[in-house]
Write a protein that binds this DNA or RNA. Structure first.
Lengths: 190, 190
DNA sequence: ACTGAAATTCTAGCACCGCTAGCGCATCTG
DNA sequence: CAGATGCGCTAGCGGTGCTAGAATTTCAGT
C-alpha cells in the first residue's frame, strides 16, 4: 500500500501547487493572467491535468477564495479579541477588513467579486466563510440594540464591501478613502 | 450637402442601434452574451463595422454606462425633490438607488462594476455621472453636521453599492435585504 | 519475467473570443 | 465615362476554456 500512498501524496502535492500557483499568478498579474495554458506551463504539466483535479478554472479560483476566507477570518478574530471595548472591536474589525482587501486585491476579488458558484448565506457555505462572518457578527452583537444582529452585520459588511470595491475600481476620490472608512465605522458605532 | 447629410444620419442611426442592441442584449442575457459577433449579427452588419464606430467592446459598454448614469441621475433627482424633509430625501434617494440597481442589473454592472476606462471622481467624469453624484450630495448635505459632505456622500454611496453588489451576487440572505437597506439609511439619517 | 489490463498523461482539436489586414465593390468626382 | 475615394466585407491571427482519443506508463496475474 506504500506505493499507492506515495502516488496519492504526489497527487495532493500537485494539487497544492496548482492552487498556490494560481494564487501567486493572480496576486502578481491579476486573474486575467490565470489561464489554463499559463497555469499548466507553470506547474510543468499539460492543460488536461488541471481538469483531473478541478472541474474547471472557476473551481480553482473557488479554492483560492476559501483559503482567503480562512485568512480573513483569522485576521478578524485577532482584531476583535484585541479590543477592550465593543466600540473598539467594531473599529478594529472594520479596519482589518479594509486592510485585508487593500493588501490582497486578487484574493479579495476571488472571495467577494468573482466565483459565484460558492454557497454563501447558507449552512452549506464554507466553514471559513462562516467563521469570518461569525467574527463580524460577534463584534456587532453588543451594539445591536433594537436592531436584528444579522441585519446589522450584513449591513456593516455591505458598507465595507462597497467602499472597498469602489476604491479598487478607482471610482472614489483616493484622498478621502481613509476618512470614508472612518465615517462608516463611526456611523455603526454611534 | 443633402446626400452627405443622409449618410451621416444613417451612420448615426446605426450607431444608436449598436448601443441599444448592446444594452438590450446585456439586460436580456447578461454582458457575457454581448460579443462582437453576436452584436454584429443582431444589427445585420459584419464585425468590423463595430470598430468604425467604437474603439472596442469596452467603449460600447462605456456608452451604455453613460446612458445609465443619466437615467439614474434623473431618478435620484425626482426622489430628492419629492421629499419634504432632509431625512426623507436621503431615504428616498437611497431607495431609488437600490431600486434602480435591482431593476437594471446589467446596466448597473456596466456603470459601477465593469468598464473601468471611464473617469470617475474627477471633473473629466461624464456629466451625467457628476449629476447623479450631485443629487446624492445634495441630499446628504443638510445632514452632514461636522462631517465633510463629500466624505459623507461617498460613504453612503459606498454602503448602497456594497449592499447592491453583495445582493446581486447572492452573497446575502435574500430575506433580510430590504431590512439591510432600511438600516443603512437609518444609520445615515440619525 | 512477461503479457494483458488499467490508469495516467499527452497531443491535437473544437468552438468561441476580440480585433484587424486587405480585398472588392459601390459611390462620387472630374 | 474613367479614375479616385471610401466603405463594408471576407478571411485570418492569436488567444480563451475545455475535451476526445491516442500514447505512454504503471500495475496485476500467470
Amino acid at each position: 500500500m506504500s506505493i499507492q500512498a506515495r502516488k496519492e501524496r504526489e497527487r495532493a502535492e500537485r494539487e497544492r501547487r496548482i492552487i498556490t500557483t494560481a494564487r501567486e499568478l493572480a496576486e502578481a498579474e491579476g486573474w486575467d493572467a490565470v489561464t489554463t495554458r499559463r497555469l499548466a506551463a507553470e506547474i510543468e504539466y499539460s492543460q488536461p491535468v488541471l481538469y483531473s483535479h478541478f472541474k474547471g478554472l472557476d473551481a480553482i479560483m473557488a479554492v483560492v477564495a476559501v483559503e482567503g476566507f480562512a485568512e480573513l477570518a483569522q485576521l478578524l478574530h485577532e482584531a476583535r479579541v484585541g479590543a477592550t471595548t465593543p466600540e473598539q472591536a467594531v473599529e478594529r474589525v472594520g479596519r482589518a477588513y479594509s486592510d485585508f482587501a487593500d493588501a490582497h486585491p486578487a484574493l479579495y476579488e476571488a472571495m467577494f467579486i468573482r466565483a459565484v458558484d460558492l454557497p454563501f448565506a447558507t449552512p452549506q457555505a464554507p466553514e471559513a466563510l462562516q467563521a469570518g462572518y461569525g467574527e463580524l457578527r460577534e463584534a456587532m452583537s453588543p451594539l445591536a440594540g433594537d436592531d436584528n444582529v444579522d441585519v446589522l452585520t450584513e449591513t456593516f459588511w455591505g458598507g465595507l464591501h462597497g467602499m472597498v470595491t469602489l476604491q479598487r475600481s478607482r471610482r472614489l476620490n483616493p484622498s478621502t478613502y481613509g476618512a470614508c472608512i472612518d465615517l462608516l465605522i463611526k456611523r455603526f458605532i454611534g
